[in-house]
Amino acid sequence: MEDFEPKLAAFVCNWCTYAGADLTGTSRMKYPSNVRILRFPCTGRIDFMLVMKAFDSGVDGLIVSGCHPNDCHYTSGNFHAQRRWVVFKEVLDIMGFDTRRIFFTWVSAAEGAKWAKVVTDAVEELKKLGPYSEFKKILLKKLQFPLDNKTADREIKTEPVIS
C-alpha cells in the first residue's frame, strides 16, 4: 500500500476552518495535496446526505470541520451539527460503515498549524486503511433479478405492552 494516494474531501465552514486553511497556506506550512476542500456556509449546513454523496463520488475519507463550540458565526449552527453527527455516526456504526474514515474536528481561523496536522494525520490514517473498496464494490454492483438470496422468511413478532 506504499504508493496508494487516498482521495480525501474536506467539508469546512466558511468562517473558521476555511480561514484556518487559508492561514496554513499563507504561513507557508506544508500539508498533503490529497485534500479537496469544499466550503460551506456553516457546519449546520452540512447535511448527512452530502457526506453520503461524497462517498458516492469515490472519496476514501472525509474531514468535517468547523468552528469550536461557542464560536459559531450563526451562534448555534455547530451545536446542532454536533448532535446530528452523534446520531449519524451511530447509524453508520450499526450498518457497518467504516466510520474511521470520517474525521470530525474543530479548527478555528487562528489554528493554521492544527489544520495542517489534521490533514496530515487523516492522510496517514487513510494510507493505513487503504482504499474504501467495500463501498466502491456496492457502487459498481448491479443487482441481478431474481435474487438467490432468500432471507425474507424472517418472522415478524409484535411486542406486547406491559402495564
Binding site: 453520503m52 458516492d56 447509524v91 456496492i138 454492483k141
Partner: peptide, 27 residues
C-alpha cells in the same frame, strides 16, 4: 436535482435510503 437517492436497483441507493429514513426519524 440533485438526485439524493439513486433510482437504479443498486445497493448504494438502497443503503442511502435506509440511512436517510433512520436519520429523519431519529428522536
Amino acid at each position: 436535482i440533485p438526485q439524493w437517492i439513486p433510482v437504479p436497483a443498486s445497493l448504494h441507493g438502497i443503503f442511502e435510503w435506509h440511512v436517510m429514513r433512520a436519520m429523519h426519524l431519529a428522536g
